[in-house]
Amino acid sequence: MKIPQILDDLFDSVPLKIIHESDNDIQIKSPTPLSNSVPLILGVYNTFHYKDIELPTDPISLATYLRLIQKNDLKLTSSSTGLTKIPFRGSPYNSLPILIGDSIESIQKIQKNIAKHYKGEEFFINDFLDTKLYNLWITCLLTEKFDDEIYHKLFDVKDFEIYDLKKEIPNWNDFKVRYPSLNLKKFYNLQLNEFTEYMDLDNLKLASFIIIINEFLPFTEIGKLIPPEIVERSYKVLNNS
């Protein structure tokens, strides 16, 4: 796998940090407990069916779900999803996904725990994609024009809930805090240019992002950039999960 120049520059400029796997592994179980431990469920905005499998409709939730399935040596099946749909206002963070067990964990906490299992170059690629893909997802939602049906499919909202959701999107992942004064269109174009440099990475998070774009937003500027062979490869990642 050839590392894009944008990542090479990152490796050269930032000291390497290696995080070793710890005993505090995050776990996900199916709604029917696989053991006597407390089952953990991933709360998401909405779901869609791919073949006979139920999957989250947003790329952050899909990537998180697939990684948790992978980490716990589970298989994607129609009878063991470990997913539940909840209103985004039902989350204490006003965003999803959240992990629900004996406590509730935000996506930031989930990603931090998942990152413990990456080492060296993989850690940096994972961290890089967490930031870049979340930013790209948010700016896509804020910049592109969607009809109400798209919001309903992605986030299970309608009518006044769509307006409420749109107001909340800039707060996701502290986006508004990190970019308090921003020309969204220019920032979006910059991210699209960067996306062309790393979209062929062989990575589960990237595959999840591409799948959601292909399923729901192929008409967007992002969708127009993705070659058919990369879309096909992304679905292979899903089929092998």
Rank of each mutant, 00 (worst) to 15 (best):
K112N: 13
L225C: 02
P228Q: 12
T143M: 00
F160I: 11
L40V: 06
K2G: 11
A207H: 01
I28K: 03
N189I: 09
F219T: 07
L40G: 00
L68H: 02
I53M: 04
P227L: 13
I125D: 01
S79I: 08
V44D: 03
Y188W: 06
L204R: 10
F124G: 00
D73I: 08
K224G: 06
H117G: 09
N135C: 09
L192Y: 01
I230Y: 13
L83E: 12
K112M: 12
E122A: 15
I3R: 11
S22K: 14
F48W: 06
P218I: 03
I19G: 03
D23N: 11
P92S: 09
K119E: 11
S78N: 15
F175V: 06
S61V: 00
E122P: 00
L190G: 03
P59N: 11
L133T: 12
D164E: 15
Q191Y: 05
K158C: 07
E121C: 05
S234M: 07
N24D: 15
N240I: 03
I110M: 04
D12G: 04
K75M: 10
E168K: 14
F146W: 10
F219W: 01
F88K: 05
L74W: 04
S22F: 08
K205E: 15
F146P: 03
S106F: 01
L165I: 12
G101F: 07
S91H: 03
L133C: 10
K17S: 12
F11N: 01
P180V: 10
I169F: 05
I98V: 06
F123E: 01
D9C: 02
K119C: 03
L225H: 02
D148V: 06
K153H: 13
L34R: 02
L225Q: 09
F175C: 06
D12T: 06
A63M: 04
H49W: 07
P33V: 00
Y118I: 00
P4D: 05
L96M: 10
K71A: 14
I230G: 07
K158Y: 13
L165P: 04
Q111M: 04
S181C: 02
I213R: 02
L133K: 11
K71T: 08
G82H: 04
